[in-house]
Design a protein around this nucleic acid. Structure first.
Length: 209
DNA sequence: GATTTCAGGCCCGTTACCTCA
DNA sequence: ACTGAGGTAACGGGCCTGAAA
């Protein structure tokens, strides 16, 4: 797909079955871009080959609806979508020149190419946000489970020695959970399993053992 | 140099159209 | 045949930025 030798962007070569642009671009792609009568029912093959209804969007003027807003929806062909997608992979934004060349090559208006890229960026961002959301959900789940385990462990420790949780501290040096005993000496409890899962400080007032 | 104006581009939310189950 | 959901092209408005006055 060497559209213009001067453009690094359009030096991109794409091998697409049934798509072979000649150096004199536009005429070679007549098979994929067709202007149809808007009143005809668009034919959609099983492979979802999209058909361009109108390359130049305009207010409908022959259906008695010129006063109202009735868009003519452009349907991109598979090849057009593919090329736009490849361009997007190369660069998420286009320079004016790239946009112009791409528009000419695809027989679309620059505005249409621009809109496609805007929508594509939006879809990309949405997908990213969804992925991030999924990740945070999983993280929340695992933290909840971790919290449950820690609660359980605290309960076990309490059962082992009936002391208030407020006197449990973790030594920052050896990372062992300690119980500040009433007589002043620190008794070290078994907190190894707990610490292996989390470096959580049970009490905010950590002391060295 | 600072301010204002304007054009162009992008993002965002929304609408309208289209297909499919 | 009808309908609702989902995908996406297109629109309009707001914001930002750089250039010109």
């Amino acid at each position: 797909m060497a559209v213009s030798p001067n453009s690094s962007f359009l030096e991109l070569t794409i091998a697409i079955p049934s798509f072979s642009p000649s150096p004199s671009l536009p005429s070679s792609s007549d098979h994929m871009v067709r202007d149809l009568d808007i009143n005809q029912t668009p034919k959609m093959g099983k492979d979802r080959e999209w058909i361009m209804i109108s390359a130049t969007p305009h207010v409908n003027d022959d259906d008695g609806n010129s006063g109202g807003r009735r868009r003519k929806k452009l349907r991109l062909t598979k090849d057009q979508s593919h090329i736009l997608e490849e361009s997007f992979i190369q660069n998420h934004t286009l320079t004016h020149k790239q946009k112009q060349e791409l528009a000419t090559f695809l027989k679309l208006s620059q505005r249409q190419v621009e809109v496609w890229f805007q929508n594509r960026r939006a879809r990309s961002k949405l997908k990213h946000t969804e992925m991030e959301c999924e990740y945070l959900k999983r993280l929340f789940g695992s933290l909840k489970e971790q919290n449950r385990q820690l609660q359980k462990e605290v309960e076990e420790l309490r059962a082992l020695k009936p002391v208030s949780a407020s006197v449990l501290t973790m030594c920052p040096r050896c990372e062992r959970v300690t119980v500040a005993a009433d007589n002043g000496s620190n008794a070290v409890e078994e907190g190894t399993a707990l610490r292996s899962q989390s470096r959580m400080t049970i009490s905010s007032s950590s002391t060295l053992c």
